[in-house]
């Protein structure tokens, strides 16, 4: 079923017949997932696409162990998730999952280092925590602004802090929910290039996006409709965000739609 090359180690994510029903108000019952199946193997870079109400947000919540399925099975890194209680789910989120949100979701009162440290506050060892956070920030190119609060950082920089935070506990999988949705094209390209580099290093990434251009940077596109997976295809030649950035050069925006470069006059910036 999966379009990806089968791996000897088995899928890192295995969803089978997952359903989820929400009760919105008194009589409004929403069947967000109606038996979704999905396998994601280690090292994949998956774009999750679909119109609003297709169930992709619910899918992400379940993949991220923020919610549990009503029925069906979800095996994450060999662990059956459906039977776990709140605290066990929290431990899974801490160890196995790195979240990147559209709205960054950084704690406004903490500086970049403290935000990045957060997963280690709730698990893992306190020893060398700050150093690990600094290293992670340096890896996403924020070595200079480690002591800044989120409000003192641009959107792209905030998202890079969020990525550093997601990576700190060396999770099995990075889940990104429209990570470029609130960013300009250049920052988007930068974030995408970070994800691509991570993927090059073997990290599994699942990313929700509305934009086909963004999805084209992934290796595989999974489409959802009406609570089930409706399409699953490999991207033959994923676009490289790095190349697009290099071609654009400084002071120019990156046209993700065509890959061509548009000069932005200084006054417009």
């Amino acid at each position: 079923m999966s379009a990806a090359a089968p791996s000897t180690s088995g899928p890192v994510i295995r969803l089978r017949g997952v359903t989820k029903t929400y009760r919105m108000g008194k009589d409004n019952i929403v069947q967000a997932l109606r038996g979704a199946d999905l396998d994601v193997y280690p090292g994949e870079f998956v774009a999750l696409m679909g119109p609003s109400g297709s169930g992709k947000s619910t899918m992400m919540n379940i993949l991220g162990c923020l919610d549990v399925p009503d029925s069906g099975s979800y095996v994450l890194a060999g662990e059956q998730v459906r039977q776990l209680n709140d605290d066990q789910l929290a431990a899974i989120r801490n160890r196995h999952i790195g979240f990147v949100f559209q709205t960054f979701n950084l704690l406004p009162r903490l500086n970049a280092i403290e935000n990045v440290e957060l997963p280690l506050v709730y698990g893992g060892s306190a020893r060398g925590r700050t150093q690990r956070a600094k290293d992670a920030l340096a890896a996403v190119g924020l070595g200079e602004r480690m002591h800044h609060k989120p409000t003192e950082l641009s959107g792209g920089q905030q998202q890079r802090v969020a990525i550093a935070r997601a990576l700190l506990n060396d999770p099995s999988i990075v889940l990104a929910d429209e990570p470029t949705g609130n960013l300009d094209s250049r920052s988007s390209a930068e974030i995408l290039s970070i994800f691509q580099r991570l993927n090059d290093l073997g990290k599994t990434v699942v990313m929700v996006t509305h934009e086909p251009d963004v999805a084209e940077h992934c290796k595989r596109i999974v489409r959802m409709r009406d609570g089930v997976v409706s399409g699953d295809e490999l991207v033959p030649q994923p676009r490289r965000a790095e190349d697009e950035l290099r071609n654009a050069g400084a002071g120019q925006s990156v046209d993700l739609h065509s890959g061509t470069i548009t000069h932005v006059p200084a006054a417009a910036r």
Binding site: L66, D87, A90, R93, L106, L107, L118, Y122
Partner: peptide, 16 residues
């Protein structure tokens, strides 16, 4: 509330 959500997302347990 949002801060609590974020903390929970990165692995805070109820007890934390």
């Amino acid at each position: 509330t949002r801060e609590i959500g974020i903390r929970k997302a990165v692995g805070a347990r109820r007890r934390d």
